[in-house]
Nucleic acid binder design. Structure first.
Lengths: 180, 180
DNA sequence: ACAGTATATCTTAGCACTGAGAATACTTGA
DNA sequence: TCAAGTATTCTCAGTGCTAAGATATACTGT
């Protein structure tokens, strides 16, 4: 069910009920910023939809997959490290790891030097699963972002990295995910 | 409570428990695509955190604000139009508009030519609110994306637009939000 | 006219995640 | 040595949204 959105609303003419539209009249630099925000969100959502659908076929959430991927590529990590890397709340990481443990893909391991801390690590099943699905996953992402060629992708990546760091460092209300 | 994250984990040395890290060895074009996806998500999240926090100060969700903004700048719209513009499910738009109606910011209006359809329109209160908060909101976004100068912003916007359209059009599992 | 199909919204159940607080363990300075 | 402060994880209630189905209305071909 590919669902191609129909953009022709030429079907029925429904008087648009004017309802006072306020033309966006702001300085051009403000307009550029606002447009960037909108386009950034839409692009992320569009790619995200594909990635979500892909991992959902294996019964996984995007966030769950993010954890598995992190553990696969970096090995066992403390829950707090995973949390910061995946950008979820402290409650969220507990919940997510619980779920992955229930699925038999991840296990908790005690930290020998700090008894408060716990490691999350892939089980053999988890490793096997990632080994199996990662290549197709990567290929799919490559295809979905294929509207840009590799050098364009690298350009955008570099700029978005600056943008992201700038935003994260910008004055009030940076990413507030932990609660301690 | 600005919460500056401490990135020095030099405090305690906790043996990293190797745990079989799998080096990401893929073709460079695949690596570029994967990195783009990660950076795109992080940048979006970083900006989103600011925008969310900003609208939350007025008791609004990001999505709610999106609806108000759309109605402010384009005038009354059919629920379905708002839905496609804001990218929420059909159930979601009903719920969101209900909430905005309860807050007195939006009202439903019958469509004279199609009795199934309803318009969403700002109330006088809704208009007043947006008139009051929009300028500061726009200024805040301008500041948050300020790591890029205007011409860089325009470049990124153009590329992200292509990326987003490409992704939305890419073969299986495009954005699937309605349920008909 | 009328059946069949498509469209627009609403209803209901449920899920993924957040936020605040709590329990425990580590660290540091007096 | 111990009190105060910090770090790490967990608990639990609440929130914002999605998905699937229901209902009502409109369109289309015969």
């Amino acid at each position: 069910m590919p669902f191609r959105r129909k953009l022709d609303d030429s079907a029925t003419v429904r008087e648009p009920l004017p309802g006072t539209a306020h033309a966006l009249n702001v300085a051009p630099e403000t307009a550029a910023a606002l447009k960037l925000w909108v386009v950034l969100s839409r692009a992320q959502a569009a790619v995200s939809a594909h990635v979500s659908a892909d991992v959902a076929r294996h019964g996984l959430t995007l966030t769950e997959f993010g954890i598995l991927e992190a553990l696969y590529h970096r090995g066992a990590m403390l829950l707090g490290e995973v949390q910061r890397r995946i950008l979820v709340s402290s409650g969220g990481i507990t919940f997510l790891v619980d779920r992955l443990v229930a699925k038999g893909l991840v296990e908790r391991q005690a930290c020998p030097s700090d008894r408060r801390a716990r490691y999350a690590a892939l089980t053999a099943d988890g490793e096997a699963l990632l080994e199996q699905i990662f290549p197709a996953h990567a290929a799919m992402i490559e295809r979905v972002v294929g509207a840009l060629d590799q050098s364009e992708q690298e350009q955008v990546t570099a700029m978005l990295k600056r943008l992201g760091h700038g935003a994260a460092a910008a004055e009030p209300a940076p990413i507030e995910l932990t609660n301690a």
